[in-house]
């Protein structure tokens, strides 16, 4: 019984990892047989061997720190501006009706295409990266804050009012605690959007952390290191999304 349960639990995990290993093995064999040029697709062993140079010569970890710092600053700004804005859209019915659909349109707009405009206005620097990522992250925070506040059961607010709570007490004791799970979801989405935007813009404007590193390596035809840096970005992003999802589940009740 225990064996069956363990196989049901670990079987798919093992199958997933085996499939990844088989793909990497096939790629290695194709490269070893010379079917694809190493300049186009270097073998996984060469990509793995490039990591010491990526760390020592290309400053992989400081670049990682820079990229994540920019993403956290942009997401932090989005929270600082977006949460009160979302509360305002909830508190003033006319503002919610007038502007919520605009914020939703803004969220769906391909803002990243505006980067030449930001280059002209702010220059090729971290300011452009943070400003654009802030704009990308903010709509999610605004919309989720409003959604969280709108979704509070009226009975909770009525109980607060029947105990004679003022507007400020009502906000701190009822509205905020009841909407925290949805707001946390907005903050998580904001962080994800900010990270995607930071890496993308660093790559496009060839400035900053991991995005610039990939572009630099591509221009120098350091293909093995380029694949290594791309793998690193993908793996760290996946770990980051996994951890923020776990954190959000931990915060969310039920």
């Amino acid at each position: 019984m225990d064996g069956a349960r363990a196989s049901a639990r670990f079987g798919p995990l093992l199958a997933g990892l085996t499939a990844v290993a088989v793909c990497l093995g096939a790629w290695q064999a194709i490269a070893a047989l010379g079917l694809v040029s190493n300049l186009i697709a270097p073998p996984p062993s060469a990509i793995a061997a490039s990591f010491p140079a990526l760390i020592a010569e290309e400053g992989l970890f400081p670049r990682f720190a820079q990229t994540f710092a920019e993403a956290f600053i942009a997401a932090g700004l989005a929270v600082v501006v977006g949460t009160p804005f979302g509360w305002w859209l909830h508190a003033k019915r006319w503002a919610g009706r007038a502007y919520e659909s605009w914020v939703a349109t803004f969220a769906a707009a391909p803002l990243v295409l505006l980067y030449p405009l930001f280059l002209v206005i702010l220059g090729r620097n971290a300011g452009t990266i943070i400003a654009m990522s802030f704009l990308t992250a903010m709509p999610a925070v605004v919309l989720k804050t409003k959604e969280g506040l709108d979704g509070i059961r009226p009975v909770l607010v009525n109980v607060g009012r029947s105990f004679g709570l003022g507007e400020s007490q009502l906000f701190w004791k009822i509205l905020l605690p009841a909407s925290v799970p949805t707001i946390c979801n907005g903050v998580r989405l904001g962080l994800i959007y900010a990270l995607i935007s930071v890496v993308g813009i660093e790559f496009l404007i060839n400035f900053g952390g991991l995005g610039e590193l990939i572009d630099d390596l591509a221009q120098r035809w350091e293909t093995a290191m380029m694949y290594g840096a791309i793998s690193f970005v993908v793996l760290t992003s996946m770990c980051f999304f996994y951890l923020t999802e776990k954190l959000e589940r931990w915060i969310r009740p039920g």
Binding site: L39, I40, A41, I192, L195, I196, S197, V199, G200, F203, L204, G211, I214, D215, L217, A218, T223, M226, Y227, I230, V233, V234, S237, M238, F241
Partner: peptide, 15 residues
């Protein structure tokens, strides 16, 4: 993998 920034794959696609 879905939310990772796809633009970083562009150098590979160009190659």
């Amino acid at each position: 993998l879905a939310p990772t920034p796809k633009i970083v794959f562009l150098p590979i696609l160009l190659v």
